[in-house]
Nucleic acid binder design. Sequence first.
DNA 1: ACAGTTGGTGACTCAATAGTCATTATCACG
DNA 2: CGTGATAATGACTATTGAGTCACCAACTGT
Lengths: 222, 222
Amino acid sequence: MTRKSQKEETQPADQKRPRRRRKEARPAEIVEAGLLEFSEKGFAAARLEDVAARAGIAKGTIYRYFESKEALFEAALLSRVTPMLDGVEAAVDAFPGSSEDLLRLLLTRIYEDMVGSDLHVLLRVIIADGARFPTISEAYYRRILSKGRSLLRRIVERGIARGEFRSGAVADLPMVVVAPALMAAIWRMTFARYESIPPERFLAAHLDLALHGLLERAPRGG
Amino acid sequence: MTRKSQKEETQPADQKRPRRRRKEARPAEIVEAGLLEFSEKGFAAARLEDVAARAGIAKGTIYRYFESKEALFEAALLSRVTPMLDGVEAAVDAFPGSSEDLLRLLLTRIYEDMVGSDLHVLLRVIIADGARFPTISEAYYRRILSKGRSLLRRIVERGIARGEFRSGAVADLPMVVVAPALMAAIWRMTFARYESIPPERFLAAHLDLALHGLLERAPRGG
DNA sequence: ACAGTTGGTGACTCAATAGTCATTATCACG
DNA sequence: CGTGATAATGACTATTGAGTCACCAACTGT
C-alpha cells in the first residue's frame, strides 16, 4: 500500500510526523497514553508499541523516560490516584458535619472517582500482575493503600469519639467498610458484559450496609 | 522438510517413564495438575509444559482431552467450586436455626473454603484474564456466580420473611454482604507479603459489619 | 552557519510458550 | 501371538512483544 498522502494537514495514522524534541512534555504525554492503554487492555496485554503510537512517538522513546513497562505503569497509577486521594483527604479533614454524612461523602466519592471512571481497571493490574511484578503491588501498598487505610481509620475513630459509630470488630479492620466498592469495580470490569449493574445501585446497597453496620443508631431514612 | 527423529537423546539410565494408555484417568489427573499450576502462577503464567510434567505426561497429551488452555481452566475451576457450592447450598437449605446463625455459618464457610484454601487464587484468573478470555468469565458468571447469588438472595429473603433482617437497599443487592470476603481473598494473594492479615480477623470484622448491617435488632454479643 | 549535543527512531534481538502433527508405543482383541 | 486402532509423544511452528542500540536529525550556542 502506498504511504504517500496527498494532504499533509490531515493526520491519518500513516502520516509521518516530523520529529520534535520536547523533553519536558514527553513524560506526561507518555503517562497519559499509558493510562489509556492500561485501562483498555490491562498490564500484560497493553503493548508499548500502542502506547507510543497514542503518544505520537516511537517505542524507543518511551525508554528514554521510563525504565520499563512496570515503571511506566507505576507512574501512570500514581499520577491519577495520588491527587484523587489527596483531594479526598482534604475534604475529610475539613468536614464539619456528622460522621454519617462524612461516610456518605467518602463512599459517594469513591464511586464517582473510582468505579465511575476508567480508573477501576488499574485495580485489575494490581490484582492480576501484582504477584508476578512486585514493583506494582508494592507501590500500591506503600503509596496508596496505606494512605487510604489511615484515612478510613481516622474517619471511624472520629465517629467513635463523637459517639456516632460503634466500636468493635469493624473498627479493628475498617477496610471491610469499603469492600463493596471493590466488588463494584470488579463487577464492572468483569461481568458488566453479562449483566450491567449501575454504580448507583451498588452505592445504595453499600451505604445501607455500611451505615447500619457502623452507626450506633439507625441512619437517617433507614 | 523431513523431521529427523533422532533417538540420540536417550536418557542414560535415567528414569524415563514408560508410556501408558490410560484414557479414563487422564482428564482428572490433568485437571488436578492444572489446578495446582493455575493456583501457583495464575492463568497467563501457568505453562502447559509444567502442567503436563506435573501430570506425568507430555504436553501434547493435554490436547487430546482439552480444547485449549482456557477449556482446561474452566474444567479445573468447576471441578472444585461446584461441589463446594453444592455443599453450602445443602447446608443452607437444611438449616433450622435463626437467620443470624445461618449468615454466620455461610460467611464462616466462605472463609474456610475460599479464603483459607488455595482456591482464592482462581479468583485472580477470573479478574485478570476474564476480560481477554470471555470463556473464563462467562463460565464463572453462568455456572457459579448466578448460583451463589440466588443462594444469598434466598438467605436474605428468609431472614426478612422471619422478621429477622431488615429489608432495604442491601436486600436489593445482597452480594454486597459478601464483599469483605472478596477483599480478604484479594488481600491474601496480593498484599499478604507486605502485611499478613489472618482470615479470622477479616471474618470477625465481616460478621460484625454484615450482622449489624442486616439485622433488625443488634446481634448476639454485639 | 556550523558543529556538537542529545532527543528521537524503528529494525532488530531475544525469550517465551500455545498449539500442531508426524511419528511411535501400547494394548485389546481376534 | 500378531496386528490394527489409537493414546501418547515432543520436536517444531508460529506469534507475540519487551527491550536494545546504532544511527538520525532537531535544536543550541557561538
